[in-house]
Design a protein around this nucleic acid. Structure first.
Lengths: 205, 205
DNA sequence: GTCTATATTGCGATAGAC
DNA sequence: GTCTATCGCAATATAGAC
């Protein structure tokens, strides 16, 4: 418990910290326990000791990452009492989060393309909550008359989520096919909100 | 060369046919050449013999699948001389293709999440052409005055592609979080086009 | 061309010393 | 708790018989 505790946590925490980028980058299969342990300066056997196996470590890392994202969104959207402000804050917040935490979208995309046993247990509950909050904000905005009467909150939510997530899902590699990476990506949240507001809003933004 | 040639092609073709769904479903790593060969009624060694290895087989399958998609789009979009009709046909055609060929989106998503060596050589050229055609249609529509003056064709293309692809990228599993799978998915192309047209069009659709 | 048999590599998990 | 050593398994690729 000397100076190591200042710069480094215990073995368990170090394993999770080094596993996160490796799982995100390479996926479950290609990120080996040996590599994760080496990166953490720990012994491969410690993975079984602390997490009961590779899958337990993956699950702990994924749960941790999603908890961060939900804390981010929870704080953000509860700060805005107005439903229209919530919607705007969803779009801008998502861009900010993905820009600050590039590994997160890789976890999500990978679980979609290739669900692990964690999918049902950790992904579904989290995404259900986030999607539910967005749909509720859209329903409330419609009720208040801020959005066109008859707007289907489920359809509107999926379109908003599509526009906000796609560019990150297809990754930096595909970004170059659609947009010049720098300036156009900056313009995207405004373009999304402008299109959406003109498309379904009653008032001009 | 008896009756087998009627129902079954040669070993090479059979290998590609059985590899396609297995690669799409499980990805490159988890689809073993043993399984692919067994499914094709062929010998595992035939993969190396005909394709020079597992990666060669994967590349052949992927190229084949993309060629199909591009034939589909090429035929579809060249039938419509009007740029606005091209745009509508892009959205509806994408939904039709993904509904008819559910494996294709899995290839795409997997290559995004986890690029193989084929990514640069086969994915990028194909998606560049498709995205280019869409952007050109949007630019022409703007020039003709069908879309708002000042519409950025790159931004508009990425938003249209986002809305048309996201629901397939996130897969059947996530569809249940956003939408009831049957009826709402049917309504999505109309909802996309309606939002887009009201958002950037000059004329009401 | 097609097969069997095998060489080689890398993985996760664990037993047992310390 | 942490280590070394190793077990058992599954993968691709290939040599060589037919």
């Amino acid at each position: 418990m000397g100076r190591e505790t200042i710069l480094e946590d215990g073995v368990k925490e170090r394993l999770m910290a080094s596993a996160r980028p490796l799982f995100a980058e390479r996926g479950f299969d290609r990120a080996s326990v040996r590599d994760i342990a080496r990166e953490a300066g720990a012994n491969p056997a410690a993975v079984s000791y602390y997490f009961g196996g590779k899958e337990g470590l993956y699950r702990a890392v994924l749960e941790d990452a999603w908890a961060e994202l939900e804390r981010h969104f929870g704080a953000l959207m509860s700060e805005c009492p107005e439903p229209m402000a919530k919607i705007e804050s969803f779009v801008r917040g998502l861009f900010a989060f993905h820009a600050a935490n590039p590994y997160m979208i890789r976890f999500i995309n990978r679980e979609m393309a290739d669900p692990t046993p964690c999918f049902e247990a950790v992904i579904i509950p989290h995404v259900t909550r986030v999607a539910g909050a967005l749909r509720a904000a859209l329903a409330e905005a419609t009720e208040r008359g801020d959005l066109e009467k008859g707007t289907d909150p489920a359809l509107a939510a999926v379109l908003l989520a599509s526009m906000s997530n796609y560019i990150f899902l297809v990754g930096p590699v595909a970004r170059r096919v659609f947009l010049d990476p720098g300036p156009s990506l900056q313009k995207l949240p405004d373009a999304i909100l402008s299109l959406f507001m003109k498309g379904v809003s009653c008032r001009e933004a």
